[in-house]
Simulated scan of single mutants.
Amino acid sequence: MTVIVRDLRPGVRADFEGFVRVRDLAMPFVLSTPDGLAYDVARMHPDAHYRPLLAEADGEVIGTAQVGLVYDSPEPGQGYVNVYVHPERTRRGAGALLVRAAEEHLAAHGATKLFAWVLDEPGNRAFAERHGYRASRSAHFLRLDLANGTLPPLQDPPPGVELRTGADFADDPRPLFELDSETLADEPSDVDYEFTDYEAWLRETWQQPLMSPELTSVAVVDGRPAAFSLARTDGGTRYGTAMTGTARAHRGKGLAKLAKNDSLHRARAAGFTQAFTGNDAGNGPMIAINTWFGYEICATEVRYVREIG
């Protein structure tokens, strides 16, 4: 069996379906659709040098890689390479070929430090370490059974707070961009991000096909978003939280919990049966909130780092 690595071909539906099929098998707790992937490929910021790769054997897609530069970080030269192989097609060399192609691409565009998320399983971690990567921080994927679980009861907003949906900001989502930028800056991470490009945020977050303004909940104080829970869906039965956070001036008042509970109740009423989210392992406050909702850890991944060049 000969394994080859090639680029995802724009406009070829089978490539996008194959990419998503492998991702769903390897990472069922991360929402991905062919249409969403096609959107990202067509509209990703040019400075990201985004390059999704496929590993193919006898016409079957057996591995994928998401490859690009962290263009929205104040530290230049950072890249990412996230490799996933069909769980029943491992040990055929696909992963190694994908890593090699990804590293060559990133090095050609000036990357000197590479980051890779690796599922916390012995074989995966050994693979990363064989390729010169060292372990850094970890993060959890969490799952909530919306169909059969019990959500906390809905609560009325406290005086001076109003609950709205993301759709209410359709004409001017900039206040949500500003809140997203502020909360992301305070997220625990080994990569610093700066959301300063509103047009890029519109393309990559707000207008992304998986984004659901209707299920996004926003707690508003004095006419300004104070906390929010950004929702995404796969168009089927899976709902995911892209970000939940509170502006610094309003933290400690339970507003993020209020917004997320509102979004989860509306997602369940809309027929979604599973809810997914992710938390850095060091983000104790958000993990506590998600535990309160009934989320359970379903997988853990480890961030691996390699210096090159």
Rank of each mutant, 00 (worst) to 15 (best):
L230F: 15
G18E: 08
P159W: 02
M44P: 03
V12D: 06
R137G: 10
A288I: 05
T241V: 13
M211L: 06
W292M: 15
A259Y: 10
F169T: 03
Q208R: 12
H265W: 04
G235L: 11
E194V: 15
G284D: 15
F195A: 10
A219H: 04
L97F: 03
R43P: 01
A107F: 07
G68A: 00
G110L: 14
L184M: 15
H250G: 08
P46D: 01
P152K: 10
D234N: 05
A126W: 00
L106I: 06
S263R: 05
R100M: 08
E75A: 13
L54F: 08
E296Y: 02
R303V: 14
W117A: 15
P152Y: 06
A116H: 02
D186K: 07
A57S: 12
G160Y: 04
H45N: 13
A269Q: 12
A249V: 04
D171R: 14
A231I: 04
T165M: 02
Y304C: 07
D180V: 02
I308V: 15
T233I: 10
I308E: 06
R9V: 13
P87A: 02
A135P: 08
R137M: 12
P285V: 09
T196M: 07
M243Q: 13
S32W: 09
P157R: 00
A48Y: 10
Y198G: 02
G278I: 07
H49G: 10
A219M: 02
L184S: 13
R43T: 13
V12P: 01
W206P: 00
A102P: 10
L142K: 10
Y80G: 13
G149S: 02
G160F: 03
G282H: 06
R125Y: 09
H86S: 03
G278E: 15
P225N: 06
V220P: 06
W206Q: 01
T165S: 12
P209Q: 03
A269L: 11
P34E: 13
P175Q: 03
L69Y: 11
G63H: 04
P159D: 08
T246E: 11
L114A: 06
L144I: 05
V218R: 10
L230R: 06
L98R: 03
E204T: 03
I287A: 12
T244L: 04
N82D: 15
R125L: 14
A147I: 07
S212A: 11
V83K: 04
L69W: 03
I289Q: 04
V67P: 12
E178G: 00
R130P: 03
A288C: 12
D190Q: 14
V70E: 15
T237L: 14
R51G: 04
E121S: 05
D58M: 02
F169K: 04
P28G: 10
L25V: 12
A108P: 09
L144G: 13
L53E: 06
L264R: 05
F29V: 08
C298Q: 15
T300F: 09
A226Y: 02
R251N: 10
G11V: 07
Q207A: 13
Q66P: 00
D190P: 01
